[in-house]
Every structure is written in C-alpha cells, then in structure tokens.
Computed example of a mutant assay.
Amino acid sequence: MSAITHHTSDALLAAYAAGNLPHAFAVVVASHISLCAECRAGLQAHQTVGGALLEDVETVDVSPQLKGDILALLDAPFTPEPVYDRSGVYPGPVMQALKGRPPRWKTLGMGVRQDILSEDDNGSVRLLYIPSGQAVPDHGHNGMELTLVLQGSFSDETGRFGVGDLEIADEELEHTPVADPGDACICLAATDARLRFNALMPRLLQPIFRI
C-alpha cells in the first residue's frame, strides 16, 4: 500500500475517541485508523487524555431516570473498533458492517455500483465501485461526506486519493471525482445528508439510489 497522505482530522479523531460520531462516520474513521499508523497514534493520544480526565472525576449518584437513559444507550448502534484484520481490500470494520458476507453490488449506471451497509436518520455508509476512468456526476454536499479509498484511486478538484486516503467534504466543496487508470476504485463513503447533484438525470434518480 502506498503512503497515506490524506488523513482524518483531529476533530474527527477526538469525536471518535469520545464515542460521539454518528455510526456511519465512525465506520469510515475506524476503517481509516485500521490502515493508518499516524492516525492510530493520534487516536491513542486522545484515548490517553480521556482516560486521565476520567481518573480525576469523582463518582456521583445518579437518578433512576438518568440511570435508565444510560442503560438505554447499550441498545444503540455500537461504535466500531478499528479492527486490524483485513479480508482482501476490506478492513476489519468494513467486514463487521458486511457481517462477513461479500458486497451485494447494485448498479447505479455507467458501471458504477454500490452496497448500502447501513442507513438511518443520522446518515448512511456505503461501498462504491467505480470503474477505471469513470466519473461520479458533478455534485456538492448538504452536509459532510467522508470517502475512504480501499482499492485503486480517484482524483478530483482537491487532488488524488489512493488506498487508505480519506477525503473530507463539506457544503463548500463541489467536485467531480474520477477513478484513475488501473484498478477499479472501491471506496467506503459516509454522508449525513443527501448529495446535491448539478445535472438533471442524477437528481431524478437520487431517490431510487438513496445517495
């Protein structure tokens, strides 16, 4: 694997360490950490600081209502751990999201395929398969999008992203990602809002593809 040059932000690492990231984003961050020694060290630093702060906190009694609310959190989607085992191009957290099965690809047209791994009111996470040389339609964002490259690479207005690289997009970014020559580009992408496509046909198909 080539050197990783695009990393998760410190703010995302801190939120992940605190368990405050939405599940979809947590899957992507955990997958990136499993591939990136630099961000793994950053996560350990945040966890060390968090542990030291907890040691200084005095224990207090809580009300039955608050205790019930805390216990209810056990039923919420868990924050995935950055498992370091891999299966082919898929990091451990992706295999957890797949529940050990191979991807169930569904076509989006022009050879592009997707497998939606999870989707709820807070966002979605999916695998994307983009053939070499194929472009994703020009689009912007109504929220944040994290895109982690698992195979191949893609390029857009902000640069080139290879295996292990993480692109962080926000409402200000308008781009047209294109898979580079070579292997098909397989990405793990998470969003907390629908994309904002500029062309009519992608906008018409958007409710069907749930992207």
Rank of each mutant, 00 (worst) to 15 (best):
A37L: 09
A52Q: 15
S34C: 03
L43Y: 05
A45Q: 11
M95A: 11
P103E: 05
G111Y: 06
P91Q: 03
R113L: 05
H46Q: 15
P93Q: 04
A41E: 15
V83L: 14
L54H: 12
D56T: 14
A41V: 08
E58K: 11
G68D: 11
D85F: 15
T59Y: 05
G50M: 07
A97R: 01
A45S: 09
T48V: 10
M110V: 06
G51D: 12
G51I: 06
G42S: 07
Q65K: 12
R101I: 01
D75Q: 15
A76W: 10
I33E: 02
Q96C: 07
A30Y: 00
P102D: 12
T48K: 11
A76H: 11
T107Q: 10
D115E: 05
V112A: 05
L74C: 12
H32I: 02
E119A: 11
G109Y: 07
Q44P: 01
P82I: 04
Y84P: 08
T79K: 04
K106W: 07
L73K: 11
P93Y: 04
T107C: 06
Q47Y: 04
V60R: 12
Y90M: 01
A45E: 10
I70S: 03
Q47R: 15
K99T: 05
G88A: 03
S63C: 04
V60G: 01
V57R: 10
L108F: 08
S63W: 04
L53R: 15
A30F: 02
Q65V: 14
V28Y: 00
I70T: 07
I70M: 13
S118P: 02
A72D: 13
V112K: 06
F78M: 11
G92S: 05
E55D: 15
V49H: 12
C36E: 01
R86L: 09
V94S: 01
D61V: 09
G109W: 07
H32K: 08
L71N: 09
L73S: 10
P77G: 09
E55G: 03
